[in-house]
Nucleic acid binder design. Sequence first.
DNA 1: TATTATACTGTACATATATTCAGTATATTT
DNA 2: AAATATACTGAATATATGTACAGTATAATA
Lengths: 206, 206
Amino acid sequence: MKKITSQQQRVLDCIQIYLNKTGFPPTRADICKELGFKSPNSAETHLRALEKKGFISIESGTSRGISIINNDNKLTQADNEYPVIGLVAAGSPTLAQENIEQTINCPNKFFDSGFDYFLKVKGLSMKDVGIMEDDLIAVKKTNEVSNGDIVIARLEDEVTVKFFQRKSPKIVELEPANEDYENIVVDLEYQDFHIEGKSVGLLRKN
Amino acid sequence: MKKITSQQQRVLDCIQIYLNKTGFPPTRADICKELGFKSPNSAETHLRALEKKGFISIESGTSRGISIINNDNKLTQADNEYPVIGLVAAGSPTLAQENIEQTINCPNKFFDSGFDYFLKVKGLSMKDVGIMEDDLIAVKKTNEVSNGDIVIARLEDEVTVKFFQRKSPKIVELEPANEDYENIVVDLEYQDFHIEGKSVGLLRKN
DNA sequence: TATTATACTGTACATATATTCAGTATATTT
DNA sequence: AAATATACTGAATATATGTACAGTATAATA
């Protein structure tokens, strides 16, 4: 993160304070009023500088389209906002902005080993171990998994949650916990396979 | 808080999701785009209804001037230590010190409606709805329960987790979610029965 | 039965707002 | 010495946006 000038800091603080107070970001005119500027261009140039330095993002052509970019310097807080990502049949569950349905505030060490995001479950392939539709799996991003771990894996374009079982150096088996589903045998030599992470816990709201 | 219609709930959810995604509230047009309305007035009337019912506030004449009113005051928003209580076969799960196995740090409003303690599950009587041995059920202490709720009930000296079903003014049925278990018919006139609370969520660590 | 709330489409318009252009001035960097 | 970044004023403008008005229709309520 680049260094910030004192005036730019004032503008950044102003945006945060305005957000806390009203629930929505200020306009250029609002910032001028708060900080005593007489021209909206004063706010504009500061905003552009803050955007260039990566402190905020500005949605072009959008009223109040300012959002503060969190570098997550929440050293004082143990909590964090964790994204909830939908398990889409085709395509990997990435942390891209458009895939984030909501965020959940949760202590960092909630699931003992720490985790990276929540994955919303589709289907019942793991129902016998109590993983039901729309449950939220706490996923720790890693590719170091052991036999018997519940993993989030991508096979070609499909993302699934299954038990992991290495059969041989080149063969991996993905095992469901539901007799209506078949084991998936993966040949690492010929198939595009990737471990997204493993389940370290589960959350359900009802 | 007054009751909300399903369409109004959709609009409220839409605002929250838009806020999470962009950092600022939606315009009327944005809401229309998200929910498929063809006139900005559709969003407008829903917003007015939500404002009238106290779910949101609208700043007049202000672009994107919508803010969601959360009735949970920031004072209780802080984290809390929640006790984990074992489901002992005999005796009610009380908050007495000797029954507390451990505590878990968790945001107050983690399970949307708020809750009082975690109950560690014994047995598999609710396995078909994904409640497994050693899972932690988030319990809200209440005796206002509806048919179909998952309740924590005490019958004589036994505490169980089951579906609640009122059959008649004096007959309540406790239904497991496991074909190996039988329904329990409770005659309120002759049996000592008490609702400890109901399940508002579930937590599993692995 | 009349009234109110819900749930929309569609048009129109005043104004709220982002954004550009034209300046002035000082400090910092190349 | 020239270029760039900072830090403003002031005016102009295209458009983004709230909001009113005119309808249609159904369900709930008094």
